[in-house]
Design a protein around this nucleic acid. Structure first.
Length: 120
DNA sequence: CGCGTTTGACCGGCGC
DNA sequence: GCGCCGGTCAAACGCG
């Protein structure tokens, strides 16, 4: 993961999304859309969105009382990149603490780097 | 035996 | 009022 340049964009959380206190979108350079951050994700759906020529995958965290959802899709401009969007916060401890130091930002209440979509 | 995965269909919300 | 898009759930199958 040399090019582990993560770009976070705080999309406009509105209305129904107000429930989700945390929405984070990562842009990672990976050939596989599978980003194991230490949690167990159960795929609950796949959908082909018009916004992208590639299908979008929906994952949910397996945990009692953990309603964290994850959305994964390939970048439209860079198929070599993967967009991983996390919705919500975990209610339980990380199943794999080994990855904890790898994704400290996910456990931090930090403001992240709130990078405006430098995509354009 | 348990659960994780996969595809399709259905439903709701928003826009026009 | 209708159409479109996105999102979620459900059932079945396969694998560990």
């Amino acid at each position: 993961m040399d090019s582990f340049d993560r770009k976070c964009q705080n999309s406009g959380i509105k209305g129904k999304n107000a429930e989700v206190s945390q929405r984070i979108t990562f842009r990672t350079r990976s050939q596989l859309e599978v980003m194991d951050d230490g949690y167990k994700w159960r795929k609950y759906g796949k959908k082909t969105v018009k916004s992208s020529p590639n299908p979008r995958n929906y994952y949910k965290c397996s945990g009692e009382g953990c309603d964290v959802k994850k959305r994964v899709e390939r970048d439209r401009d860079d198929s070599n990149y993967v967009l991983t969007t996390y919705d919500g916060v975990h209610n339980h401890q990380t199943p794999s603490t080994a990855y904890y130091s790898q994704m400290p930002l996910l456990h931090s209440n930090h403001d992240w780097a709130l990078h405006p979509s430098a995509n354009s």
